[in-house]
Design a protein around this nucleic acid. Sequence first.
DNA 1: TATGAATGAGTGTTCATTCAT
DNA 2: GATGAATGAACACTCATTCAT
Lengths: 188, 188, 188, 188
Amino acid sequence: MALFAERGFEKTRIVDIARRAGVSHGTVGLYFPTKEALLRGVIERMAEPQMDEVERLIDAFEGSTAELLETLGLFWWTHCQEESVGAIVRVVEAELGNFPELAETYRARVYDPVIRLFVRIVERGVARGEYRCDDPAPHAELGFGGLGYVLDWNEGLGRVLNRPIEARRYIRIWAHALACGLASGADE
Amino acid sequence: MALFAERGFEKTRIVDIARRAGVSHGTVGLYFPTKEALLRGVIERMAEPQMDEVERLIDAFEGSTAELLETLGLFWWTHCQEESVGAIVRVVEAELGNFPELAETYRARVYDPVIRLFVRIVERGVARGEYRCDDPAPHAELGFGGLGYVLDWNEGLGRVLNRPIEARRYIRIWAHALACGLASGADE
Amino acid sequence: MALFAERGFEKTRIVDIARRAGVSHGTVGLYFPTKEALLRGVIERMAEPQMDEVERLIDAFEGSTAELLETLGLFWWTHCQEESVGAIVRVVEAELGNFPELAETYRARVYDPVIRLFVRIVERGVARGEYRCDDPAPHAELGFGGLGYVLDWNEGLGRVLNRPIEARRYIRIWAHALACGLASGADE
Amino acid sequence: MALFAERGFEKTRIVDIARRAGVSHGTVGLYFPTKEALLRGVIERMAEPQMDEVERLIDAFEGSTAELLETLGLFWWTHCQEESVGAIVRVVEAELGNFPELAETYRARVYDPVIRLFVRIVERGVARGEYRCDDPAPHAELGFGGLGYVLDWNEGLGRVLNRPIEARRYIRIWAHALACGLASGADE
DNA sequence: TATGAATGAGTGTTCATTCAT
DNA sequence: GATGAATGAACACTCATTCAT
């Protein structure tokens, strides 16, 4: 994972992966018939966003949607930071054209569950009477995107250009913007 | 551009580019000494988001920040759609590790100018008395990110997973969320 | 070695070397990262003119400088003949401009040691009272050159033009000429 | 000539020759159908060692063979120095395997005439009663080689290794060694 | 007569994959 | 199971040669 994240798919040599794993490159071939299988393996082992834990957190949370989003955003940001999720996602995106199956894995393990959580948050806000919302989907997508962006940027262009985003503040604004967007009823 | 967008940097063979251009692969070498130069050429030719035009549009606009953002978002979205900007940016990101100079080109020609426009929008809102804002940067980054996300997604994972975002509605929500975030004073 | 000697550096294809070695061209790449490394390998393996043996021979020799030179000349001539040293040196010279490091290798492993031996011979002659000589260097260079010439010629132009030098007689004259030159005190 | 001498045959690009000649590379093709023809042209125009002049010099010379050789050696050395003959000869040698015709040209225009001059010098010495010599050939070859060596070395390995031979002294020694060799009667 | 755009064969180098030990 | 030597397909890059203008 670390190597794919650092160098991309094509530039990562199997020998290096093997060396890093402390085995010979021949041994890698015994467990993963092709390089693509290796990448698939990485994605499948990719740290899931700990859905259950987050789900409980949402249900138990007492404050406003904005506060919940900020809490959650920070949690995920920390989590993904540790696991260099951003870099892996960039690799997956880059290889989409070549290995479409990867996309499916990514959707099933990451995208769909996270979107579902965002939907749950929106519904929770509606239930609490914060706002009305008939179609949570675009809000969920906006949430996912805004959060994904900061992860992506800080590990990618932001790092190279030396223009890191101060994540804590960004996430606060993101949370408020999302919540406000819900409250403004813009989707009607 | 089309080929890099479709297949990524490594998987795009120079012969294919040449064939598509109706020349032999040797001819490509006469104009671009290396494959990297070819990619840099693409970025440099990557239609700049018509900064001047947008600038004038911002200054002349009469409505609220939310309305301005929505108008602008739709404009850029249409524009980038036509030029498959999303895909190219993904390629650039993927090759950052290998060709760091690309990042600089991207920053100078795309990122910095667009961020500057977002800052201008925020300042315009402040001048109009819509809200107070001491530090427009994170708002600008949030704006850039939210818009970049939909372009990226719809040309990348969204397409492959057959889960395109309905852009018009997304952009409306994005615009309102951004404006609300500004109004909520979350950065203080 | 044989192929470089026969065809020169540029015209020798790695595939041919590989085929001659009974392996595939990829295999060559496992042992020599570049073609230049291959040539350097050849030089390094280029049988050193058995310096120690020659040194002992010089010290133990009883006769005159002319006789010693003739003995030595024949010894080296035979030795280099067997290893097609002449042709390799020509290749090295031809590639000097492109790979200057080769020169260093050649100097350290061939030129300097041999010149040192010639100096030793001159000093031995002085010690024996055959002649006086304050600066052995040009004599050593003349000796090296005269001997190098016959090797070079007989494997290069001489062979192609079908004008081989009869080495035994040439070396006898070379030895006497050198010794006479020393005796004549021409460097004073 | 300068370019071939500097870079060798393969590494010299026709475009560079053309640029140096102030024409376009296409134009070169009009006068020399192939690159090899270009090299042959260079050799044919290669400054001949001014045979006639030297011949007269030999016949008119009054002093000993050693003095004549020293005078001649210096003359040629100066002449070849100016025309970078050494480098050209190295190129020819390097390309012998690929273009054997070149060798023939070289023999006819350079080698044979010069050897003939050396033979003439030896015969002159015999006529003057300096020594007896039944077979001048090996002496001529030794002379040619010793002189060729210093030219070759100083423009090739000697330059790269920063070990130039002080030509004036070398040539004095060479002349005396040759003359002594003749006087010693080593070829009998 | 000269140009320079275009061609395409040729080759060094990389590296995923295989397989005998 | 594990190794690492060997393979060979793939591809970027160079540049002599051609030819329409």
